[in-house]
Design a protein around this nucleic acid. Structure first.
Length: 233
DNA sequence: CACTACATTGCGGATTGGTT
DNA sequence: AACCAATCCGCAATGTAGTG
């Protein structure tokens, strides 16, 4: 239980002195007198029963106890400030739409979509965009940390219990080396790939595109195309 | 030794908060 | 509402240590 004698002013004074390394400068920053600052710190030290600063003729330095308090008081005060700030935003009725998007979506589709949405909404709602792999975005969506995700269709298991809507088709581009039999073949449709061995990114521990690879293999197999997933370097 | 920069102490008025 | 103790904070004086 926090000692009831410890007030917010004590912690604010402590943090400012720790920042400024000087009672006088900290007092100036907080708009109190230097003796007032000295007393406030002394009170806090008496309450805690330990010295927080080493006094020198040229200022002050944190003691080990001061460092320990700083590690906890700093985040605590910041959390409090953020809480008060959040209440202020809620009071001002600021709405935020939290959108998860793949990097390709973020740069191409999203800017125009956000512009249209804000025009349609005609209010002060803001948009907070988070990018990352599908699995990461979907996990945040499930935890309620995102309002919606714009990404690729993925395995049914990952989108189970989620409402989704098909937005668009994405054009895929086949890239081959110079001199490859498929280079210059036009139009290049899957049946025309013949028996050419293919290379497809195989998901590893660093990659979450398992669904992309498996879908690729499945679709090619349906068209009688030999398609061997391998790890590209 | 004088000056400067800093912290500490004592005092007192104003404010706050709990109790009746 | 009145009372009172605790708290807050400013002013003035004082102490300490580094510097030229």
């Amino acid at each position: 239980m926090l000692n009831a004698r410890i007030k917010l002013r004590h912690l604010q004074a402590f943090l400012e002195v720790a920042r400024q390394r000087s009672f006088a400068r900290a007092a100036e920053r907080l708009a109190i007198t230097q003796p007032g600052m000295s007393k406030t710190i002394k009170e806090l030290e008496e309450i805690l029963g330990t010295a927080l600063f080493e006094r020198t003729s040229r200022g002050v330095a944190l003691t080990q106890a001061g460092l320990t308090l700083l590690r906890h008081a700093g985040p605590a005060i910041r959390a409090l400030e953020e809480g008060v700030s959040a209440l202020g935003e809620a009071h001002a009725a600021v709405r935020w739409l939290r959108v998860g998007a793949l990097s390709t979506v973020e740069s191409r589709l999203l800017p125009e979509a956000i512009r249209r949405w804000q025009q349609a909404e005609a209010d002060e709602a803001g948009v907070n965009v988070v990018t990352g792999p599908s699995a990461f975005l979907l996990s945040r969506l499930r935890r309620g940390e995102l309002d919606l995700v714009v990404g690729r269709m993925t395995e049914a298991r990952e989108i189970r219990d989620l409402a989704f809507e098909h937005l668009y088709y994405e054009r895929l581009v086949l890239v081959v080396r110079s001199g490859h039999p498929l280079a210059g073949v036009e139009p290049l449709e899957p049946p025309g790939w013949g028996t050419s061995p293919g290379c497809c990114h195989r998901p590893g521990p660093h990659c979450a595109s398992r669904s992309t690879a498996s879908a690729c293999v499945t679709r090619c197999a349906c068209r009688g195309v030999s398609w061997r997933p391998c790890r590209c370097r």
